[in-house]
Simulated assay, not measured.
Amino acid sequence: MKKVLKYVGIGILVLGALWAAAFFVKSNSKSAIQYDTKNPFITNIEKKSVATGTVVPQDEVEIKPQISGIIDKIYLEEGVKVKAGDLIATIKVVPNEQAMNQARGRVRNAELALNNVKIEYNRNKGLFEKGVIASQDFDNIQLQFDQAKQELQNAQSDYQIIRDGSAGGSSTANTNVRATVSGTILEIPVKEGDQVIQSNNFNDGTTIATIADLSKMIFEGKVDEGEVGKLKVGMPLTISLGAVQGKTLDAKLRFIAPKGVEESGAVQFKIEGDVDVKDDFMIRAGYSANASLVLEKKDSVLAIPEALLQFDTKTDQPYVEVETGDQKFERKDIETGISDGINVEIVSGLTKDDKVKVWNKTEPIKKGTEEEEKA
């Protein structure tokens, strides 16, 4: 009976040891990773660059007053389409007291001078008619009289301009602010009651309104110095507007700045493109936009996803791993061409039949049992 119990105990120990060993092997073993493969394929690849910027009118005209004063009335609003000659605002003249006083004094002096010359003229006219003085002497007096009358007219006109804003009995020539070009009013930065000044040698003058033709728009943006050398005037652009989703505009590169500007440590070059404006939606001045430029394009080339590439740590040369058997791979050096950031051109080293390893696949992590976690 003791021997039976002894053998039973030994058997239990052996079975326990075998179970423990099997559990250990099972808990510490990992299944082999099964790598996927992809074949090279034929596709079209475009290498693009994106320039950020804005869409603005080709020409903006600032309307300035012809005389200083106060805005009396504004007749139009921003966004209204106007034609050249349309009335935008009127200005009320506020005369300068010092200039008014000087102008009045000049008028008074001209009147005194004219009265004095008139007396002399009338005296000499009577003598000339009696034949006492020569014709030449009378002609000189006649000239002085005419000059005195003209000086009085000039003084009176200057006084009226200072007082009313214009001579001739009407101030509409200078006090009326009219559009000088046809287009859309983009901005009226003044309001009724604001004081404005005319343009002169020391001041640009107050802007009454800004007018632009919104049918002639351009894209203004900047590109990095690493890409500006690949650009050429006349290249096509595709403009995407941030404010208009799902709509694109065609454009043509018209200008590349000859000088760059450093911004945040990088040299940027200004570019401009003529935008082909469409009639199905309105483009407002100042819309933010992105311009897509095709720097290089190749059709029907052999390519693989760029994510399959690996690079030698010493030479930085690209290579891939090609399947030679069931889950067996070997390194293959390749030569690449252009890339669009997703696919890369294969110049040499691969064929359409090669199966390229998707090398970055990882095995999913398995959750252990409660006993393993506690251990």
Rank of each mutant, 00 (worst) to 15 (best):
S348N: 07
L76F: 04
A257D: 12
V94M: 15
V320S: 02
T172Q: 08
D59F: 05
G105I: 05
G349D: 05
M1T: 14
K361R: 14
N343I: 10
V61P: 00
K232E: 11
S264H: 12
E345A: 02
A291V: 08
T207N: 12
N176C: 07
F311R: 01
I346W: 07
K216Y: 02
I256F: 05
S135V: 14
R123D: 12
T336I: 15
A84Y: 06
G105E: 10
P305L: 04
E272K: 08
L127M: 14
K149F: 03
Q98Y: 13
V294Q: 01
K247T: 05
I141M: 15
E372G: 06
F41W: 00
G234Q: 11
L15H: 06
G368H: 13
I338H: 06
L18Y: 10
L5N: 13
E321S: 09
K2T: 06
L76K: 10
I74A: 02
V267Y: 02
K64N: 09
G242I: 02
I70F: 08
L293W: 04
T207D: 07
G286F: 02
E321C: 04
A103Q: 00
K297W: 10
A307P: 06
S31W: 09
I133L: 13
E220W: 00
V14N: 08
G183W: 03
T210M: 03
A51R: 07
E323P: 08
G234S: 06
I45D: 15
Q245M: 06
T336L: 15
L309E: 06
P364I: 14
V94P: 13
K30W: 12
D333Y: 11
N174R: 12
Y287M: 13
T315M: 05
M282Y: 06
L87P: 01
L241A: 04
G337K: 04
E372R: 05
K366N: 15
D86S: 07
D279K: 13
E372P: 08
W359R: 01
N360I: 07
K191N: 07
E60P: 01
D274H: 00
N124V: 02
V14D: 10
K26Y: 11
V132H: 11
I271Q: 04
V358W: 03
A251N: 04
K130V: 03
Q195A: 12
W359D: 10
E345V: 08
I67M: 04
L214A: 01
G79C: 01
S182N: 03
R331I: 15
P305N: 09
G168P: 00
E306T: 13
L13Q: 05
V50T: 13
I45R: 01
F281W: 06
G169W: 03
A99D: 09
I218R: 03
V322S: 00
T172H: 07
